[in-house]
């Protein structure tokens, strides 16, 4: 592959200015997707603008809530104890992303900006109601992650904007979470994935979150599935109903990794398994 002009600004302002002055240039963070696509013959941008040298983008603050730098590597994020302890489902999803080598390079922002239906971090972040902070010439704006994805490979970020950070609120008190990913071998893109969050009080599901990957044009919440359980005890009948609804709620396609029917089926199984596993965690405490 012939090399492209490569810029490595060290401030946000410089990055935005470069983007404005270089028509057809593209931002690049970890490069684990961009480089693969360029090698595969994707249209070549006029230049690449690296975001990895910008401290504002690689810095994360994690305490009661979390502000995760969009250009922080997944490995750096996984090294934050407070993140692993506070939002274990996100850590679990990130830990299942590809390989240690890829996690050293890949960024959370890149994982989201690719807007791939299979982005591993997305379902976990959706379960936590994450927001994305965008910055452009007009300043900053905040979008719910659910609003961020438009269609496969396309976000609602403006051409002159970049993703600053991913913001996550403190988890609901008592929240239990899990992430289930269907893959062919251990190092694989998700064929279907489910992240789930549950709070139970007095045997009743009082807070339910499901999000799924690889089963719709973009990573998605499953509100109807959530509604089927919320306010109810997780009885066999309720779980079966949630499972049925989940299978209807997703809209997978058939590709060489898996058939639509199979993916639908897996989503149902995972919704059931996640619900049972999370409900079981409340059994001892009540």
């Amino acid at each position: 592959m012939h090399p492209l002009p490569y810029h490595r600004p060290t401030s946000l302002e410089a990055a935005l200015e470069l983007k404005a002055s270089l028509p057809g240039a593209r931002f690049i963070a970890g490069g684990t997707d961009v480089m693969v696509r360029l090698k595969g013959g994707a249209p070549r941008p006029s230049a690449l603008i690296s975001l990895r040298g910008i401290a504002e983008l690689t810095r994360s603050e994690v305490a009661q809530s979390a502000r995760l730098g969009a250009a922080a590597s997944v490995a750096d994020l996984l090294a934050i104890d407070a993140l692993r302890e506070g939002w274990p489902v996100l850590a679990d999803a990130m830990n299942q992303m590809a390989s240690p080598q890829i996690r050293s390079s890949a960024t959370l922002g890149g994982n989201l900006c690719n807007a791939a239906p299979c982005a591993d971090s997305a379902p976990a972040l959706l379960v936590h109601g994450a927001r994305v902070v965008l910055r452009g010439p007009q300043g900053e704006r905040v979008l719910a992650l659910e609003e961020f994805f438009a269609e496969p490979g396309v976000t609602r970020m403006g051409a002159d904007e970049l993703l600053m950070s991913i913001d996550v609120d403190p988890p609901e008190p008592g929240l239990q979470t899990t992430f289930l990913k269907k893959k062919r071998v251990a190092m694989d893109i998700a064929i279907a994935s489910v992240a789930a969050g549950l709070v139970m009080n007095d045997g009743i599901c009082t807070h339910v979150r499901f999000a799924a990957g690889s089963v719709a044009p973009v990573p998605m919440r499953l509100p109807a599935t959530e509604a089927a359980l919320c306010g109810h005890p997780p009885t066999d009948a309720r779980i079966a109903e949630a499972r049925r609804i989940a299978e209807e709620e997703v809209s997978p396609i058939t590709d060489i990794r898996g058939g639509a029917d199979y993916r639908r089926r897996i989503i149902g199984v995972y919704v059931e398994r996640a619900t049972r596993a999370l409900a079981a965690r409340f059994e001892g405490s009540e």
Partner: peptide, 17 residues
């Protein structure tokens, strides 16, 4: 790179400055 494993096939050399 600084102790972390990387795939050198995807890492622009400019990043190891």
């Amino acid at each position: 790179v600084d102790g972390h494993p990387f795939n050198a096939c995807l890492l622009p050399a400019a990043e190891v400055e």
